[in-house]
Structures are given as structure tokens and as C-alpha cells.
Design a protein around this nucleic acid. Structure first.
Lengths: 346, 346
DNA sequence: CTGTTAGCGCGTTCAT
DNA sequence: ATGAACGCGCTAACAG
């Protein structure tokens, strides 16, 4: 390993001078020395030892990206392309800012914060945190944190709170409203799990509001379907629903393309024609909604923009902490494709 | 930040004693002190500062996972669930071994090695390295490296070379052979890009061999289709092929489920019936082959096992470097589903 | 403009 | 069994 000290010896200057050259402080080094040192640095392919840097009170240049364990362990996080995409884009943004990405799946706030403190992590990105955890995070953490897709009550937000999410409410309102305008009245709502929190809760609210605005009754007990996380259980449950309760609906709203395509296929396997016998909508507009036949009518979110904004705000807070609150909700876009149809001409 | 020194002050012992307790050296500390220190450690939620650790010649506990940039920048790496899965499983294995995962996308060997040396990374996992790069890596790197899905000539392998891949040759031989036994003779082979290297090259070889063994001519100039990486270009090209050259085939072999489903959909959009008018096979057996209709006949690989073995061998080399060569090729399994049919009864 | 020095947190060696 | 002292690589404060 080439160290500053060795370079200094080689060139015949002090370590400080080398350090100054490394940091481009031209005004502190004579032009001649600057050139000589620069050359030696390149020659020896000097790479600074990060642990030395960190120890002498400098930033670690690490951004921790934390996935919620309880979600990660579920099969669909491994399969849902959203996580794939967002992690890819986050890595890109982090790297382009000259930072390193440490990826960690964690079950608890404490575990995440231990990681952060062990590495003097400069900033955290937290995906899919529950509201309660988010609160704990912002209270205890010493470094800037950016949440993605987390909902927290306004009063709880500490200064410096960053969250980048979607207009989930509006997005789901739009797609529901679209179905209503196509003439649908018997619409079911399907999501992962039984207890809706955060994103899905907002989407359900948007759905509810659209129904209410149109004067259509929605009975949450009856018309909301919480689907099991595990693939096989979900398939069994969906198949059962298809043979029974789904028969009384003309349209189903899903909270993700992933779930929607799953159901779409099972419906077709059970001789439902889509969209003739059932209209289906998704959420995300990712590869699933494009690769299904018929293609899904869905709500688009811009994952790349999500990642970009997240890192942008995080870097802002790292470099010039203003402790401002940034609670971004990105716009969604209704994508009308082939899985929905009008009931008007019946 | 709680440091060893502070804990020492609190309890009234020396830092060395605290350090000994942390490392569980009971024989070096009196039982009484051991207990007191342990308690203080827990009380204060002591987390060791990794930079201090690294600096005093200890391991960083970091495993670097490196994605090939040229691939990463292509849209399909973001979309192909294989990368999603393998990264998820690698993270899990790394974490379970008490290590941290640094995820990095890199365009060059040098850049990757710089990362490794800056962080004193203990081991590298390299995904999708080209043979030339793999060679360079093994020659220059100072730490254990495990490749995933890389092909390198035997003589080039340095001691300590680890590669975990698939029986790509055999897998593709099997699926091709299956098509041949169904009576297919006019079979096209479709892969990403024009220059096949590594995995895809092996799969093509297996394909070729199966054809040769059955005495069927395969004209690489004519029957091999290199598909563009970019989605739109690929769709345009496939659509064009469907209207022209694909008409002379009864079956198409694809090197991934991702590509196969893409083509399957476009074929159906252009009024091909699958499998009546064309048999299609994929490779991977991931969510795409399950969510397509008809479901894809494909070749299964066990991604979780790949990740487990990779980290297992890497940890072996890290903890007790034997400098043995481990060039694993995991078995594949032919999954017969609905996208292929027999020509026999015609 | 340049060099010396001290200190960051940890682990280890060597006295005690 | 315990503690003092040193060094890992880097940076910043300070002295020249």
C-alpha cells in the first residue's frame, strides 16, 4: 500500500505537502513541488486509505442504504423490480457524487444506527420504513437521513427530515376515477397484507375518495382484499376469490403492477377475459405492466427521479445542513392501456 | 460516540482490559472486571469504530460486490430479476457472516481495485466480468475474489481463483435436445448482443452440440440472432424478424427468460400462436417464465445457491487461505411448461 | 511555502 | 491480571 508518508519520502517533501497536493491546495505548495508530487502520486497510483481519513475526523464518504428486513424477507421484494431499479439508481447517484454505497438489510432501527455509527456513515437512505421507525430514526440519528416512500405525521418531522415519495393518494384517485368514468361501479381494491400502512394506506384513501365523490358505496369489510405475501398462499387465495367473490365485480384496483399481473394471469387461467369480463389496474408502470397481455392500465412513477431527488437532498443536508424539511411527493401519471374497458355501451 | 477509552474511564480500568473483554479473552481479565466492563459496554451501547479497527491492521469486514458497468448501463440489467435476486441473496449471506456489503458499479478493473484498497476490502464478489478482466483481477488483486458466471481458461487461473457458475453448456444442450426430440429441426438461437462471450457463448456451444449430435445443420450466420440491448431497438428488430426470417423456424431458443418473454409477447402481438406456430424456450426460470402466458419452458438455475456458495468459498479463502481453485458449475434443470409443443403428430 | 507534531480509535506488545 | 505505550494513515494546527 502506498501511503502519503512513502510518497513524501520518495519526492523528498513532508507528508503535509503531499496531503496539500492531494487536496488541490495550490496556494499552499510551490508550483515545482506541486508538479513533482502530483507526478509521484500518479506514478505510484496512490489511493487514499479511507480509515485514516475517517479517523482524522473526516467524512467516511459512505452512504448507507437500508432495506426494511421484514419486507426484504418476503418473496416479492426480491421479485418486485421497483427495489431493483431504485437500488441501481441510488448506487449510480451515490457514486456520481463521489460517495460509496453500503447496502444493508436491517430489522431494527438500533441495528441500522449501529451500522451507521461504526462506519461514521455520512448519510442514510431508508427504504420502506414504517412510520413508527421513521420517527425513531429522525429522533435518534446523528446524520442526515432521507426516507423513500414513508409517511410521517407533520408534527413529528424533525428539522432536516427528508422524504421522497409519490402522490400516492392522487395517483390512486385518478385511476379509480378513470374506472368510474368508464362506467364501473363494482370495484374491488387489492393490496399486500391486511394492515395497510404508508403508501398503500394512502392509495386506499385516494380510492375511497374517488368512490365517495362519485357517490358509490365502498364497504371496506367486503370490497377490500388483503393478499398474502407468500406466492403460493396468494395464488391459492386469489384462485379461490376468482371462483367466488370476484364474480360480483367488474373492475379490480391493485396497488402494484406485480400483484395486478399475478391476478390478471390467474383470472385468465380461470377463463376470465380481460378486459371484457374484468378490468384490472396496476401501479408503478414497470416491466410487468408492459409484458403482460393485455398490457396493464396503470399509474406511472418515475423511479430514477425518485433516486436522484433523494440523493440530491441528502447531499444538500450533508454539505450544508440547513435542517429544512423536504417532504417531496412526486407526480404520478395515468397510463391507459389494454386491461380496462368501458361499460357504457351495455 | 462511545469509545473504548471512555468505557475504560467509566469502569475505572485500562483500555486494554476493555479491549480484552470486547474480544472475549476471559483468561486475561478477572471475572469481576469482565462482568463490570461487559455491563458498561451494553449500557452505553458500545459500537466499535471500524476505522480504528482497520487502521490497527485488522480486517475491514467489508465485502465489495462489483457490477460490470457496461452491463449495468444497459436497461436490461436494471430489469432482469437475476441481478435483483443475486444481490439480495449476497447481501443476506454477507450480513450473516458478520460482514458488510459495499455495492459498486465499475467500468474498469483499476477502478474496482482502487475501491478495494481504499477500504482494505477483505474480499470481492464480481458479477459478469469479461474473461480478460477476470484474468487481470486475479493477477493484480491482493485479496480473495469470487467471480460469478465468469469463464476463464484453466491455465490462466491463479491459485485462489473462485468462480461460481452454471452448467450453461449442459443446460442449453438439454433444452435444445428437448426441442429436437419434439421433432423440431428449424431452430433459431437468440441472445443479447452480437459478440457472445462467457455464459452465452457456452450456451451457444451446448446448443450447437445438441444440433450436431442430432445431425441437424446449424448455420451460425443465418440462424443466430444477436439482439440489441436497448428495449426499443430490440423490439423494432424483433418485430422485423417476426415478419420475415422467423417464419422459417418452428422453435426459438433464448438465453434468458427476459428475452424469451419479450419475444413471446411480440410474436403473439403479430398473431403467432405459441406454441402452435412457434415453440419458445427461455433460461433462468425466474418470475418472467412464470408470469408469461403460456408459461415458458425454460432452464432453471438456483440463484440462492449461487450466492450461498460464492460467499461460502470467499469466506473460506478469507479465513484460511488455501489458495485452492474452486471452479463450481451448478447443475441446471429443464422445466417443461407450455411454450413448446411436439411436431410429431403432423 | 514547508515541516513538525499531535491526535483520531483500536489492538497489541511489553512491562509491571 | 493489568496498564502504559506505540503504530496504523491521515489531517489540521502550529511553528518556522
Amino acid at each position: 500500500m502506498v501511503t502519503i508518508k512513502k510518497i513524501a519520502e520518495m519526492v523528498g517533501v513532508s507528508p503535509t505537502t503531499v496531503s496539500n497536493v492531494i487536496h488541490g491546495r495550490k496556494n499552499k505548495v510551490s508550483e515545482e513541488n506541486y508538479k513533482k508530487v502530483k507526478e509521484a502520486l500518479n506514478q505510484a497510483n496512490y489511493v487514499s486509505n479511507m480509515s485514516g481519513r475517517i479517523l482524522s475526523q473526516n467524512g467516511s464518504k459512505i452512504i448507507g442504504v437500508i432495506l426494511n428486513y421484514s419486507r426484504r424477507s418476503e418473496v416479492n421484494v426480491v421479485s418486485d423490480p421497483f427495489y431493483n431499479q431504485i437500488i441501481g439508481y441510488l448506487e449510480e447517484q451515490i457514486r456520481m457524487n463521489g460517495y460509496y454505497m453500503m447496502l444493508y438489510t436491517s430489522g431494527s432501527v438500533q441495528e441500522s444506527l449501529n451500522l451507521a455509527s461504526a462506519w461514521k456513515i455520512e448519510g442514510l437512505v431508508i427504504l420502506g420504513a414504517l412510520p413508527a421507525d421513521a420517527e425513531k430514526f429522525s429522533q435518534v440519528a446523528q446524520m442526515p437521513i432521507a426516507f423513500i416512500d414513508t409517511y410521517v405525521d407533520e408534527p413529528v418531522m424533525k428539522k432536516g427530515f427528508i422524504n421522497v415519495g409519490l402522490q400516492d393518494y392522487e395517483g390512486c384517485y385518478d385511476v379509480t376515477n378513470y374506472l368510474i368514468h368508464l362506467g364501473h361501479k363494482n370495484i374491488g381494491f387489492c393490496a399486500d397484507g391486511n394492515q395497510l400502512i404508508g403508501v398503500d394506506e394512502q392509495r386506499l384513501s385516494g380510492f375511497n375518495q374517488a368512490m365517495a365523490d362519485a357517490g358509490i358505496k365502498f364497504d371496506q369489510e367486503k370490497d377490500f382484499f388483503g393478499l398474502p405475501y407468500k406466492v403460493h398462499e396468494r395464488h391459492d387465495y386469489l384462485t379461490q376469490l376468482i371462483k367466488t367473490r370476484f364474480k360480483s365485480y367488474t373492475a379490480l384496483v391493485f396497488t402494484s403492477d406485480y400483484l395486478a399481473v399475478d391476478a390478471l394471469n390467474l383470472l385468465q387461467d380461470n377463463h376470465f377475459r380481460i378486459p371484457e369480463d374484468m378490468s384490472i389496474t396496476g401501479f408503478d408502470h414497470n416491466i410487468f405492466s408492459e409484458q403482460s397481455r393485455p398490457k396493464l392500465t396503470t399509474v406511472e412513477q418515475n423511479v430514477k427521479e425518485k433516486a436522484q431527488l433523494t440523493i440530491y437532498y441528502l447531499m444538500q443536508e450533508i454539505h450544508q445542513p440547513k435542517a429544512q424539511i423536504a417532504n417531496i411527493k412526486l407526480k404520478t401519471k395515468l397510463i391507459i392501456q389494454e386491461s380496462t374497458r368501458s361499460l357504457e355501451n351495455e
